[in-house]
């Protein structure tokens, strides 16, 4: 599903050049539940941003389902994101003036979809992520775990091919974080959606089917054993 070839991304910070990613080659298959791990500054978020078409590489290519995703114009990339990708952020990034249901529906409002189908999808995903009864609450009245559930639902409701999650448990306590990971895994299984997430939390790494480890912008380990098991 995702084929990354010789990916290079360099940042300029003042007079210094930071090589965030160095010649990354990687393939992720459809339906994988893969974690990208590594210490701070290893390039995890940069790699996710590039896969998510919100950043552009200096060299190399990223293909998703056979298309080079960063080749098009900004509007084409935006269209690709709205139709194919879901994002889950470390700090949830919910819209505070919208209720839980409205936040989830925001994702669907970008798609041309009959109102009945939209309502049906909303009802189903709210049920799946365990937010029934909390639909009308605004983010301020939800716990961190509940807010991340809303964010996961918002990413999944449009049935994307790929969900990218940047440190999805970093702002949660370990118990809540584990619950969110379990939820994401269940959804990965039930929706057959590919999940790629970054983390430096051992608990999260343990729950991943595949663990890709980055250090100084390079892949230093790619543990496929869990997927095999």
């Amino acid at each position: 599903m995702i084929t990354i070839t010789n990916l290079v991304r360099t940042y300029q910070t003042g007079d210094n050049e930071v090589r965030a990613l160095r010649n990354i080659d990687l393939a992720i298959a459809t339906g994988e539940f893969a974690a990208i791990a590594g210490p701070s500054g290893s390039g995890k978020t940069t790699l996710l941003n590039l896969i998510g078409c919100i950043d552009e590489p200096d060299e190399g290519t990223i293909e998703i389902n056979g298309s080079v995703v960063h080749a098009g114009k900004a509007k084409e990339r935006a269209l690709f994101r709205r139709e194919n990708l879901g994002f889950v952020f470390q700090s949830f990034n919910l819209v505070p003036v919208l209720t839980a249901e409205e936040n989830i529906a925001l994702s669907l409002s970008l798609l041309d979809m009959p109102a009945a189908e939209r309502r049906e999808r909303l009802r189903a995903i709210i049920d799946e992520v365990g937010l029934t009864g909390m639909e009308d609450r605004r983010p301020a009245r939800l716990s961190g775990g509940q807010q991340q559930r809303v964010a996961v639902a918002r990413a999944l409701v449009k049935d994307p091919k790929l969900v990218l999650a940047d440190e999805p448990t970093a702002n949660l306590d370990s118990e809540t974080g584990a619950a969110i990971l379990d939820l994401m895994h269940e959804l990965n299984q039930s929706h057959k959606t590919t999940f790629v997430f970054s983390t430096h939390d051992p608990m999260v790494m343990d729950r991943a089917d595949r663990l890709i480890t980055l250090r100084d912008g390079r892949i230093v380990d790619d543990d496929l054993r869990r997927r095999a098991s």
Partner: peptide
Amino acid sequence: RREIGMMRAMGLYD
């Protein structure tokens, strides 16, 4: 800014 970034990431056009 972050909320706007999130919406752009979701696929809203500028």
